[in-house]
Write a protein that binds this DNA or RNA. Sequence first.
DNA 1: TTGACATATTCCCATATCAGCATATGATTC
DNA 2: GAATCATATGCTGATATGGGAATATGTCAA
Lengths: 117, 117
Amino acid sequence: MARRPTTFDPFNAVAEPRRRKILNLLMRGERSVNGVARMLHFKQPQVSKHLRVLKQVGLVRVRGAGKQRMYRLNGKGLKPMHDWVSSFERFWNESFDRLADYLKELQSEEKPHGPKE
Amino acid sequence: MARRPTTFDPFNAVAEPRRRKILNLLMRGERSVNGVARMLHFKQPQVSKHLRVLKQVGLVRVRGAGKQRMYRLNGKGLKPMHDWVSSFERFWNESFDRLADYLKELQSEEKPHGPKE
DNA sequence: TTGACATATTCCCATATCAGCATATGATTC
DNA sequence: GAATCATATGCTGATATGGGAATATGTCAA
């Protein structure tokens, strides 16, 4: 197997820095393809391609407006990522001893196979 | 240019589902390579490879313990990702009109090139 | 040193990427 | 329909992946 396609899920789609930039831009409102291209100094074909990936994983939506196609953010698509990353929040937020407590909790809930290794 | 290497940053490293599983497991405490392999039903060489990637992007740390190498999570490495994703939080959290207000704010701060498109 | 266990590395292969460029498709207006 | 603007797609080339299997390296113990 090779690497998962970028269209596999938002995690893969968003691994590409330019696509993150595009999403950042779209936070401020919908844009046409050329609009994105001009704002970010990307070339039109690449913008189209990146937007296609983002659309496939549900991170943007499109709307036809005359000759143009207006792309807008679909922020909800990032919620699963947010949920996953947030589960690690305590590892940089809480004080060390509270973290230790938490880990103790977790370990007392062991279940698969044998405990530890 | 090809796709960014998985070792380019945490975003890329974490795009691989198995690596996320490994991090999830390490949340519960440090593990040896074989420990990870057994818990997740992966094969040892792949675990070593994935852990290598995770180490290179700073998401795990290692410690030698006899024949074993104990890997532990370095949660802080995920903070940049968390920060980025969190900036989209409002798009699924807040009520629609508050969001609208927020967007209005953003747009009145326009700056690069010409406004809109 | 030798043996045994734990981990890391190497090679192969099918697959996918992304940029750049050219070109095709779409939509609008004349 | 033809010209035009906007967007999408196709192709190439350089690069990287990730699993599998084999093997190398490391570490300890007798």
